[in-house]
Design a protein around this nucleic acid. Structure first.
Length: 415
RNA sequence: GCGGGUAUAGCUCAGUUGGUUAGAGCGCUUGGUUGUGGUCCAAGAGGUCGUCGGUUCAAAUCCGUCUACUCGCCCCA
């Protein structure tokens, strides 16, 4: 039993789970399509530089979580740990700067070498949306509303809270960082070990600390809002007004900071209390500096990613397996032949048809029952003589004789 | 990477102060039913007790180890 296991932090999606997983992706894409997004598919690995340059050399993802390897040609490649950098890379590679705004939807596996927990895997899946080339807050609003609609489509409108913050533009963010670090250095002695490390790498993160001592220090810390310049303040006001006018409720959480270096202005998280420590279900923000930082034109962007595993665990109405019509031959070899032909004919007519491979009638009806079939099309000697079949409704148990010519019409209600 | 918990049949779980052939429910197979599923009845299959090692006359049970899962931290979807 222990002999053959999937690699730690990876899992198989057996049919029920796979169906839920696929439903999350499809519903998300269907909603995104209505918002005018088109799908972009990028490779699941990139040159390591693509992530190193964008995520920041000090981020945890780069320093300890990437699946990086050298290929036979000597290039350093990395299984993508997130989706934004590849999308922006594809945007640059494909010369899409000529066509802005570009609204991209993506989905697929991501890889991070982390300690697995519930809702946290080493290979996990995300769906994501990015808008490239829009400077104004209209894109931020649209992208957040898209997220809200998708969660609604998954039945999560009530279980998820939207948290919103702004990091300001690059100037404001830098200014705040300076004031914050100055303040924190004054109270260094009270900070936790983790936060002391963060003081150098990513001081904004300390605002988010769960350590009690840290929280006390943070409570008196200078607030980011005070460091915002007029542009940043105005930008954020327009985002919140836009959301208000569309009836999207949100909470402003001044301590919400995103982990990755490329974020500016708007940052948001959709969270739930139903997943333990992994409460974030969809998160993102604006990243105006990213494209240029990657060596492309200075194109602004805003977007988010959502965890498919997390969403599929929470989804309130995962789709049931389709209910087939079972074709059941009574036993004679001629019946078998006819059953095969009938099944083929009904499948061409668009019905979901199960044809048991073997067994007597009782066995095959049992199988039909296990598959939750709507109806059984039974054919044997009597039916053959009459040029007809027996259609049994498996919910009601009612049976009717139906002429072969009328079969599609009679089965229409089981579609 | 750090700290805690758990691991017995396909699934959910019992298993006494360590004691001989390790159990239940559900599911599965077969039969009752050679032209009728669900309900019912009967029989049956299925377990290196996660791994490796130790203590003991004796280990599912006690100890150590590794692995996986899980909860929290870090980080994040």
């Amino acid at each position: 039993m222990a002999a053959l296991q999937p690699v730690r932090g990876t899992r198989d999606l057996l049919p029920d789970a796979a169906r839920a997983h696929r439903a999350v992706e499809e519903r998300a894409f269907a909603v995104a399509t209505r918002f005018g997004f088109g799908e972009i598919v990028t490779p699941i690995f990139e040159f390591t530089e693509v992530f190193k340059r964008t995520l920041g050399d000090t981020s945890d993802i780069v320093t300890k979580e990437m699946y990086t390897f050298e290929d036979r040609g000597g290039d350093s490649l990395t299984l993508r740990p997130e989706g934004t950098a590849p999308i922006v890379r594809a945007f640059i590679s494909g010369g899409l700067a000529q066509q802005v705004p570009v609204k991209a939807f993506y989905r697929g596996p991501m890889f991070r070498y982390e300690r697995p927990q519930k809702g946290r895997l080493r290979q996990f899946h995300q769906v994501g949306a990015e808008v490239l080339g829009v400077e104004g807050p209209a894109a931020d609003i649209e992208v957040i509303v898209l997220g809200a609609h998708i969660l609604e489509a998954l039945g999560l409108g009530d279980t998820v809270t939207v948290e919103l913050n702004t990091l300001g533009d690059l100037e404001s963010r830098a200014a705040y960082r300076e004031t914050l670090v100055a303040y924190l250095k004054g109270r260094q002695g009270e900070l936790s070990e983790d936060s002391l490390a963060r003081l150098e790498r990513n001081p904004l993160r300390i605002l988010d600390s769960k350590d009690e001592g840290d929280r006390a220090v943070v409570a008196d810390a200078p607030v980011l809002a005070d460091s915002l310049n007029t542009t940043s303040r105005d930008f954020f006001a327009r985002v919140t007004e836009g959301l208000d006018s569309l009836g999207v409720s949100f909470e402003i959480s001044p301590r919400l900071v995103r982990g990755l270096d490329y974020y500016t202005h708007t940052a948001f998280e959709f969270t739930t209390t139903h997943l333990g420590a992994q409460g974030t279900v969809l998160a993102g923000g604006r990243y105006d500096g990213l494209c240029k930082q990657m060596g492309g034109p200075p194109v602004p962007g805003v977007g988010w990613a959502a965890g498919v595993e997390r969403l599929s665990m929470l989804m309130t109405d995962p789709p049931a397996a389709p209910r087939p019509v079972a074709v059941v031959p009574a036993g004679a070899p001629e019946d078998e032949v006819l059953a095969t032909r009938l099944a083929d004919r009904l499948r061409r007519a668009g019905l979901v048809v199960d044809l048991g491979y073997s067994g007597n009638m009782r066995k095959r009806l049992k199988r039909a029952n296990t598959l939750n079939a709507r109806a059984a099309v039974i054919l044997g000697e009597d039916e053959r003589a009459a040029g007809a079949v027996t259609v049994r409704d498996l919910d009601s148990g009612e049976q009717t004789r139906v002429a072969l010519d009328d079969l599609e019409a009679a089965l229409d209600r089981y579609r």
